[in-house]
């Protein structure tokens, strides 16, 4: 049985992606030592992690070669991730109290 899609992988491209991933991982360690608030640090680290994940998905997992599957994975994953965000207000309420309650 074949996969149906012949991958146009090349060692050169994979090596470039690998070096980019290493560099992005190193950037996360640099951000950890920056003199910024935890919230700012979180946002920057999340941004770098998302870029890393995107590179791994597109090139290591070959999603760049299958447009339909790319949208399928993206829509399902984003829907799940968005669904998980409903509890943040409760998380803030636990530490700050309920600001609107008198």
């Amino acid at each position: 049985m074949t996969t149906g899609v012949a991958h146009k992988s090349s060692l050169g491209k994979d090596l470039i992606v690998y070096v980019c991933l290493l560099a992005l991982a190193a950037i996360q360690f640099v951000i950890a030592y920056q003199n910024i608030s935890t919230a700012q640090m979180f946002v920057r680290m999340l941004a770098v992690a998302l870029i890393e994940a995107g590179l791994a998905l597109l090139f290591f997992m070959h999603l760049s070669e299958n447009r339909g599957l790319r949208w399928f994975v993206l829509i399902f994953t984003v829907a799940v991730l968005l669904g998980l965000q409903y509890g943040w207000t409760d998380s803030f309420r636990l530490i700050d109290g309920v600001p609107w309650a008198k």
Partner: peptide, 27 residues
């Protein structure tokens, strides 16, 4: 093909680590 499918899983494990390191360790 079977190696490729196992490889997909392995890349996913790698991908998860990219989120575990910053949030569980570096923060």
């Amino acid at each position: 093909d079977d190696l490729e499918i196992t490889g997909l899983y392995w890349h996913f494990v790698d991908l998860v680590w990219m989120f575990v390191v910053p949030f569980v360790y570096l923060l």
